[in-house]
Amino acid sequence: MLNKIYDWVDERLDITPIWRDIADHEVPEHVNPAHHFSAFVYCFGGLTFFITVIQILSGMFLTMYYVPDVENAWKSVYYLQNEVAFGEIVRGMHHWGASLVIVMMFLHTLRVFFTGSYKKPRELNWIVGVGIFGVMIGLGFTGYLLPWDMKALFATKVGLEIAGSVPFIGDMIKVLLAGDTTIIGAQTLTRFFAIHVFFLPAALFALLAAHFIMIRRQGISGPL
């Protein structure tokens, strides 16, 4: 049955080459933990992507309840965590995922560094990867404010002060992020929400696509 549907679509759209191109690439022995256990270090990149998928999904679901507003943000988070079934788990997935993705990305970066995989011809992919690292840090920083609880507010205050200490343009960056010259409040929250939910994820998708396309073009780096 499924095969027939597949053939019907394939006859019309010729879809086999599209996904075969993604599915058919060789996995050499030296990165396969089934053959060399130490090759588990090559798993960190995949796990980073896996958690990123969880983050995107759980984030999408969280916005069903969350409102980015100083009056209601905390109340809506409290509500979704304590009153909604599985709210604790969905928010937990997003919260712990945010930490785990940083850990996994850190380990992945170290693996690429110590295997010297960033060298010619993979310089560009390394730069894109460091870009992803920056975006992830930005996502962590903006997401920390959204529950609008005590630690969120005060950590963001410090973060914005640091942004403000950039020479020459610091004050501009600070106002651009906070939305006001002195207050960290309603406009800061909506800005951080927009950055966290639309701008940075858009950048992340673009960088991830570039990252993966380059891996497929170049293949994985050879054994040491």
């Binding site: 905390w74 604790e88 937990g92 919260h95 712990w96 609008w148 609880d149 005590m150 969120a152």
Partner: peptide, 8 residues
């Protein structure tokens, strides 16, 4: 469970 402090 993920922590939540009092409102800002």
């Amino acid at each position: 469970p993920s922590p939540l402090e009092g409102p800002a």
